[in-house]
């Protein structure tokens, strides 16, 4: 990082052209398609667990292995899913987000991004 010549600072026009480029649209939708369902999943799963713990105490007190009951097991599962989502996201980000983000970043930092891609086309709604 320290060896390279300092990258060009993109202009306001560069950013607008980049935002509309198919590359950026693809990066953004790749990110959202993963992040939005995952966020909904863990929030719903956490709230479900909280609600079960509060309103379904008998169910949660069901003994499963020795003195270990369902509540403790579901609680430990919250840890498992948290670790799991973390691992999934890291694999996903390394494989699907980073290469796309890097290509765009390099294109923008090489200078003259807007001129080589064509100017901003009108002002879309």
């Amino acid at each position: 990082m320290s060896e390279q010549p300092s990258p060009a600072e993109p202009t306001a026009e560069d950013f607008q052209v980049a935002q509309r480029s198919p590359e950026f649209q693809s990066l953004r939708s790749t990110h959202r398609k993963f992040v939005v369902p995952m966020t909904i999943f863990f929030l719903v799963w956490f709230m479900l667990y909280v609600l079960l713990s509060i309103y379904a105490t008998d169910f949660m007190s069901t003994k499963v292995i020795g003195d270990v009951n369902l509540g403790i097991i579901l609680g430990l599962l919250q840890f498992v899913t948290t670790f799991g989502i973390t691992a999934l996201y890291v694999v996903f980000a390394n494989k699907s987000l980073d290469p796309q983000a890097q290509d765009l970043r390099e294109a923008l930092e090489s200078g003259d991004y807007a001129r080589t891609r064509g100017p901003v086309v009108g002002k879309e709604a």
Binding site: P10, F15, Q16, A18, L104, R105, E109
Partner: peptide
């Protein structure tokens, strides 16, 4: 609109993010 474009592109790509101090 310009700033919004800049922020969104920067946030997703890391263009021009503050570099470490040498």
């Amino acid at each position: 609109v310009e700033k919004q474009a800049e922020m969104e592109v920067r946030s997703m790509t890391g263009v021009g993010a503050e570099a470490p101090v040498q």
